[in-house]
Simulated scan of single mutants.
Amino acid sequence: MLHERWALSGSVALRPEPFGALAYDFTTRHLSFLKSPELVEVVRSLGSSADVAAALISSGVPESEWSSYEKALRSLADSGMLTTEGVSS
């Protein structure tokens, strides 16, 4: 996943919250909690980054924490919140 391009699905909106954000998919009606502002920053930067690793770097995430972010991003991808469709290489 680190060397793949991902982006927030077009049907998903983020609503900022003090703890991070709520992600709501208007197609599936699925709701997810992004439990840190740092994770929200990574998710927002995915679409404009070359890959997930670049998004982590641009968001200032230390490499020692990448595995926990990758786990959170994989969970969002598995639920359809993130997509590779329409993301150009």
Rank of each mutant, 00 (worst) to 15 (best):
S89R: 15
L82N: 00
Y69E: 03
E38A: 15
P18K: 09
H3S: 14
S9D: 05
H30N: 08
A21W: 01
T84N: 13
S89V: 10
L56R: 04
E63A: 15
T27H: 14
E70R: 02
T27V: 11
V40A: 08
H30W: 10
P18D: 11
F26R: 09
K71H: 10
E65Q: 15
S64M: 12
P18C: 11
P18V: 06
P37I: 01
F26H: 15
V52M: 02
D25H: 01
A53C: 12
H3E: 14
L76M: 07
D25M: 02
E17N: 05
D51E: 10
L46A: 05
R74V: 01
A55W: 06
S49P: 08
A23D: 04
T28S: 15
S36E: 04
G60V: 07
L56C: 03
S64Y: 10
G80M: 06
T84M: 14
V87H: 05
S64L: 14
Y69G: 02
L34V: 04
D78Y: 13
L73I: 03
G47I: 07
P18F: 08
F33V: 04
Y69Q: 05
W6S: 00
D51W: 08
L73A: 02
M1G: 07
S89N: 14
E63M: 13
L56M: 06
H30F: 12
E17K: 03
L22H: 06
G10F: 09
E63R: 15
S11G: 04
L82D: 04
